[in-house]
Amino acid sequence: MSENTAEDRDGLLAEAVRLREAGRREEARERLVALSARWPQDAEVAYQTAWVHDTLGLEAEAVPYYESALAGKGLSDDDRRGALLGLGSTYRILGRYEEAVATLSGGVTEFPDDGGLKTFLAMALYNTGRTHDAMELLLTLLAATTNDPEIAGYRPAIEEYAKDLHATM
């Protein structure tokens, strides 16, 4: 049996990612689970393993891989952002709403310009009954990012209402 070299890991990981991207997700999952067993402390391998589980609808199985990826070192900023969004979204899908809010809130703190994290956080906030917070977040995001001239023209009003939906102007 060969040693666990970085070269082995890189090639095997790249091949598994290619399989996932080509739609051969179950085959990719098998390879990534084996890679995770071989390199259990590797955050990037854990992230890719979580991701493939999510694409297969195996959310509960994805969670420990996401948690391992985020606890480890070596994720790029893009992969860390993806892991935070993936874990938070997965917690939400599993009904673990408070954990979803905590994870996604941490992601928004770490990556304040990421609209995807904010959108998933709004959904999780809704699931916890924090509808005002969810609406505030979504309306603020909409006002800041829209290219629709019909909405952009009302940006100041939308931003003001986002703070207090019960307010009158």
Rank of each mutant, 00 (worst) to 15 (best):
T119C: 03
A144F: 07
L85M: 07
V108T: 06
F120V: 06
A134S: 13
V63F: 06
D114F: 01
E159W: 08
E67Q: 15
A14C: 06
T131Y: 14
L94M: 10
T146H: 05
T119I: 03
F111D: 00
A122L: 00
Y91K: 05
L84T: 02
D113Q: 13
T119N: 09
T131R: 12
R9F: 01
A16L: 04
A152Y: 08
M169T: 12
E30Y: 08
M169V: 14
Y47E: 01
Y97L: 04
A37W: 07
A100N: 05
L35K: 04
A43R: 04
G107A: 09
W39H: 10
L35T: 02
K163M: 05
D10I: 06
P40S: 10
T131F: 08
A28G: 09
T55M: 07
L165E: 13
G72I: 00
L70W: 02
I93K: 14
G74N: 05
G115I: 00
G82H: 00
D8Q: 15
A22F: 10
L138S: 12
I93Y: 05
A6W: 03
S89A: 14
G23T: 02
R155E: 11
R38N: 04
S105Q: 13
R9L: 13
A14M: 12
R80N: 06
T55I: 07
E159S: 14
A83Q: 05
R38G: 04
T5Q: 12
H53R: 12
Q41E: 15
L84E: 04
A162H: 12
V33W: 00
T49R: 09
L13A: 09
M135F: 11
L94P: 00
E15N: 14
R92D: 01
S2C: 12
A60D: 12
R155F: 06
N147G: 13
Y66P: 00
L32A: 05
A16M: 02
Y97Q: 12
E110I: 08
G88K: 01
E99Q: 14
Y154S: 11
V45F: 08
E44K: 14
L13G: 06
G153L: 03
L137A: 01
